[in-house]
């Protein structure tokens, strides 16, 4: 299985799961921020616990990884940009009722306004690229 077809398959699984638990529903995402529905908090906490346990199993029993390379965990350095970036992202999350993954599931389900969130995300990423031209530490 090459990387592209592999990610296509895992993407289908991810999108299917997001859609099945209601992560692509505006009401559930916004409801988690207004304290009306904690379904997705349950999804995320479960995912974090399962992911953390799975990583421990992987480190103990499945090294090196399938290709024979040593496991290389991607790490983002702690920096001040996590705070403004996090806040901006969070505002977008609460407005659109979607995040970069769930908006894709929304589009697959046929939610028209998800396409606008998606287009906005591409433009937001473009704005970042433009800002980064003049501010390399961003």
């Amino acid at each position: 299985m090459n990387k592209k077809s592999g990610f296509l398959v895992f993407g289908v699984l991810f999108g299917f799961a997001l859609s099945r638990v209601g992560a692509s529903e505006y009401d559930l995402i916004v409801g988690m921020f207004t304290g009306q529905d904690y379904t997705l908090v349950g999804v995320m906490v479960t995912a974090i616990i399962v992911g953390a346990l799975g990583m421990q199993v992987l480190k103990k029993f499945a090294q090196p990884v399938k290709s024979g390379e040593p496991l290389k965990i991607s790490y983002k350095e702690l920096n001040k940009w996590s705070i403004p970036g996090g806040l901006i992202f969070g505002l977008g999350w609460g407005i659109s009722g979607a995040c970069p993954g769930t908006v894709l599931a929304q589009i697959g389900e046929g939610k028209i306004f998800g396409l606008f969130t998606f287009a906005g995300m591409i433009c937001g990423t473009y704005i970042y690229a433009r800002l980064k031209e003049n501010n390399s530490e961003l």
């Binding site: 992911g51 977008g92 906005g120 937001g124 970042y128």
Partner: peptide
């Protein structure tokens, strides 16, 4: 929704990740 998307795209890049990359 487009405006919300702009904030998502910009914020994710400044923060270095999103719900899947950072939070999970």
């Amino acid at each position: 929704f487009f405006a919300g998307g702009i904030l998502l795209g910009l914020g994710a890049r400044i923060a270095g990740g999103c719900t899947s990359g950072h939070s999970i």
